[in-house]
Each structure stands twice: as C-alpha cells, then as structure tokens.
Design a protein around this nucleic acid. Structure first.
Lengths: 196, 196
DNA sequence: CGAAACGTTGACCGTTTTCAATTACAGTGG
DNA sequence: CCACTGTAATTGAAAACGGTCAACGTTTCG
C-alpha cells in the first residue's frame, strides 16, 4: 500500500479547481465529500462534462499514464478529496504484481458497474427503469432494498426527476408490486412462476 | 508474452457472433480489423450497446475474472480477431507486473469511456445530448466529427430514436450550429458563453 | 436488379418534465 | 425545548418533448 503519510487531503471551495486541463498529472484522487466535475474544453471554447465524481469515487486514474490532465477538475460544491501521489502508486504497482492485478480487477469491476448503469438508462419507461433498479438492489427474501440516501438523489442517478419517482412509487404500491417501509422497499410482485 | 501458437485467429462475417451472453468465458480478444460491438440484452428483449471495439482494441477483458460472458460480442462488419486463452493470459499477468499494468491501463481507459457515455445520458434534452456527443467526438479546428457508422446506430448509443436524431440534426443545421457534410459534421456555432 | 437498411419528414399521442404548492422532518442555535 | 431553516417527500395541473407510426426517396449490397 501507499504509506498513509504520503496521502494529502485537500479542501476545495465551490467552483475551485483541483487541476486544470494541461497541468502536469501528479496524483490520482478520491472524493471524501462533495462533488468533483471533470470538464473537457474544446477548441471553440465550449465544454462538455465528462464525469462527475461523488463521495467514494476516484477520479483522474488515467493520469497515472498521462503526462498531463486532459480535462479540468472542478469542485461543484465545497468538497474534500484525498490525493494519492502518482509516483508512489506507480512504484507499488511496478514491483508488486499482486497489486497491479488487484488494480486491474478493481477497474474491471468498475467497467462492469458502469456498463450496467448504462443498461439501466436504456430502459425508457420510468416505471420499468425504477423496477429494474429495485430488482438490481434488492436482496434477501422477500427481495428488499434498504435506502441509504434520499430518493431525490437516487432519482438523479436513474436519470429521472424525483417527482416521477414518487409518483411511480405510489403507483407501484397501489398495484401491490412493492411495499414501502420506513427506509426501504420490498418487492411483492408475482413470484417467477413454476419451473419452466 | 503469451506464446504465439496459443493465439488463434477468427474471421467473422458481418452480424456473426464472437460469443453470446451466458457462454462460458474462455478468452479475451483483440480486434485486428473490422468492428466488434458488445451488446447486453434486457429481459424485455431490448438491448444496449455497451462498447464498440475497433482495430487494436481488446474486448471482454472482464471475462478474465468472470465465469461467463455477460454480453454478446457481435461483428458489425466483416472482422478479424485474435483470441487469447484466458488461462494463458492470467499466467502471464501473475508474474509480469508490466503486463498487469498494461491491462490496468486499458481497463482505466474503458472506465473513462463508459463513464463518459453515462454522463451523456444524463443530459435530458435530445438537442443538448446530441450536441454534447458531437463536441466529445469532434477534433481539430473547426471541431469536426467523421462518421464511420450509420446515424441509426449512433442514435441507439445515445439512447434516442433515429427520427429524433434526424430532426435535431436538421434543427441544429437550420440554426447554423453545425454544418453537415457527406460523412461528417462540423461545429460552427458560437461557443456556449459562460463556465459552469 | 431487387431487397434491405438508411435517411428524412410529417402528424399525433403519451410520458415525463416543469412549475407550483404543501406537508413532514432533521438539525441548529437561542 | 422550541421556533427556524433547509431539505425531503408528495401531489396536482399544464406544457413540452420525444416516441411511435407512417410514408417515401435513397443508398448499399448480395
């Protein structure tokens, strides 16, 4: 592992930059709190948001292999991040095949997660999308989801407005598809019929 | 490296499958020529295009740690690919940190691609979404996109119907935001003014 | 040469977004 | 312990936008 004392913590005000497109790539970051937006600038002056890192997300991993950052990293809101110096991380990876493999594995998992979010987004109907999300999150019998953050946030992740979420939730409950509890929901839908 | 004789080459006709969702994961692939599209199927019969591998790109790396493929691999056009047996590759990665690093690098790139698709999907408006996509793809001055596949396919990747794409394209052109050429588009509009 | 797939455009319909208003809370400082 | 403030949860009504269906010209490719 990278020694604890090599990590540094940075606090950013809303609108402050972690780094700018073109800066020498020096570290990989992890968001502790707040929100960091990666922005790519075009020759004509316009810009596109390329990724939004939320608490727990890492960002600028690609800088490990790049000379300089290829986008801006801006704090949308007041944020706290941890910086892992690039050279330290590279050092560990180079003489520890286990570590490199572990990293590859983590990245592969991220690819899968990210792709499955994409899959969810491809479901047009709000109703089906929400249902699919619940099914993905649900665990146990009966399948239950424990909510650890406000619906309002989940709505955004699903690419829907919170209003639709509430409405849909109400509808699903009305149909008896789900049951809502204090901080969770349980699937009550028709079990998958017999064998074959 | 994996011994040359362990690699096998496969030629695929347009539309042919490299593997199907659920098949036992046996190899990682590299595209020599053509184009391979990874497609994930949903229960309702619809599907999402999850990644497009072009010459030089590898695909199905995640299968290294998975029992079976979680999506279809289809040749869009006649293609030639090399298959690297999973076990051989794992062997190399375990005692060659360089190789493991290289893999991590590739995966990091894929994470970036996937995240950026997700970011695109977060844009509600068809108009803004398409514009953002164009900006992402565009290169040079003036920023230009060269199309290598039908709009109909791009539409699906953007999560829009082709009709909307055509309409929006027409609208954007009418406003002078873009200029359409034979197999490409150029950004011509005034840049979006402010930051944030 | 003919069948598919692609490109394009119009009209209409339905779902989601938007805007708005209200209630329920959780945290905060007096 | 209680107003005070901001976020979350809800629900309604109307507008907007994208989906769907349809029809037709064009290009591609076997």
């Amino acid at each position: 592992m990278v020694a604890r004392e090599r990590l540094s913590v940075r606090k950013l005000a809303a609108g402050e930059a972690v780094f700018r497109q073109g800066d020498r790539a020096a570290a990989v970051y992890v968001v502790q709190s707040g929100r960091i937006r990666l922005l790519r600038h075009l020759e004509d002056g316009s810009s596109v948001s390329v990724y939004v890192a939320r608490p727990g997300d890492s960002f600028a991993e690609a800088s490990l292999w790049a000379e300089s950052y290829h986008c801006d990293g801006l704090a949308d809101v007041p944020s706290v991040i941890t910086a892992i110096p690039k050279s330290d991380l590279l050092g560990v990876l180079e003489d520890n095949p286990q570590a490199a493999m572990a990293l590859a594995r983590i990245l592969a998992a991220q690819v899968r997660i990210s792709r499955s979010s994409l899959e969810l987004r491809n479901i047009r109907s709000a109703r089906e999308r929400l249902l699919a999300w619940i099914r993905l999150q649900a665990e146990g019998a009966p399948p239950t989801v424990v909510l650890d953050r406000p619906w309002t946030q989940i709505a955004a992740e699903l690419g829907l407005t919170h209003e639709v979420i509430y409405r849909t939730l109400a509808a699903l409950q009305g149909e008896g598809q789900i049951t809502r509890t204090v901080r969770g929901i349980a699937l009550a839908g028709p079990p998958i019929t017999g064998q074959r």
